[in-house]
Design a protein around this nucleic acid. Structure first.
Lengths: 152, 152
DNA sequence: GTTGAAAAGTGCTGCGA
DNA sequence: TCGCAGCACTTTTCAAC
């Protein structure tokens, strides 16, 4: 289970993280191994849970979702966390939810169509969840960086 | 440029967002169109910038990155934003950076190996950037939700 | 714009070292 | 355990509707 990933694994991952559509045979050539080896390594990495598949990257603004915001959530009691998460999961606008240290109990990232949609999501959805005391909103005016962590 | 995406496009996107590896021919069958049509639509969506390719999903904890944190950044002057972004881009631990409304000037999401690595990133990297006054850290103890926005 | 089939290239599995 | 080769499959392209 706690297998140590070697240099070849990391090279393969780094190359695929830049471009998933890149053929195995092409990667094999650059790393001077056979195509079958890449396949075996990737299969192993999948089984180990290191890679969790791949995802289609959709530009939210291009499909009408113009607003990205971060919401700091205050809960009345920390113990209400589990129930609150279950409720939050029902709100499709929430794309990320974290249980955090610091001022807030939870921290959410949400994607909305416009300011009215944002207001609806906050007032009529998030703030009606039992245990949610109040929220603080940070609207993203510009996403300057969005990438994955570099594997070293 | 401002092409309106139709129902078929949305259906294709929704299906591919659930599973990118799903063959075009399979999608074609379910939507009762030919495989060529799916290909043409996806090509158009690529050119329009609606889809920005696909990404390999790597589990950060499995490659030794155990800590995910959100950092609220205070700048001395808002005008220093552009220069600060350029500096932040050089820090590989930063995976997301937003220019936000509210208390903070900027908001960052960072991924680190352990608490020492987090301290290093904060003290020796982020806080040495000119214009950065102070930072506030929210460590994520649990990522409860992580998904993409539903296209309706 | 869509369809259907043909061509090119890729991923997968069994065998050998 | 790793590398090589054949088979099945998918993507892509193209002419016709």
């Amino acid at each position: 289970m706690n297998y140590e990933i070697d240099k070849l694994d990391k090279q393969i991952l780094t190359m695929l993280m830049q471009d998933v559509t890149r053929p195995y045979t092409d990667i094999a050539k650059e790393l001077s191994v056979s195509g079958g080896t890449i396949h075996v390594r990737m299969k192993k990495l999948n089984e180990l849970g290191v890679v969790k598949g791949s995802q289609l990257l959709v530009n939210p603004t291009a499909v009408g979702y113009d607003i990205c915001a971060f919401i700091g959530v205050f809960l009345e009691k920390g113990s209400e966390y589990k129930e609150a998460v279950a409720q939050m999961r029902q709100i499709p606008e929430i794309v990320e939810l974290h249980y955090t240290t610091g001022s807030y109990s939870m921290f959410a990232k949400i994607i909305c169509r416009d300011t009215q949609h944002l207001r609806e999501t906050l007032n009529e959805k998030m703030q009606t969840i039992p245990g949610v005391q109040r929220t603080e909103t940070f609207i993203s005016l510009e996403e300057s960086i969005n990438r994955q962590v570099a594997i070293i």
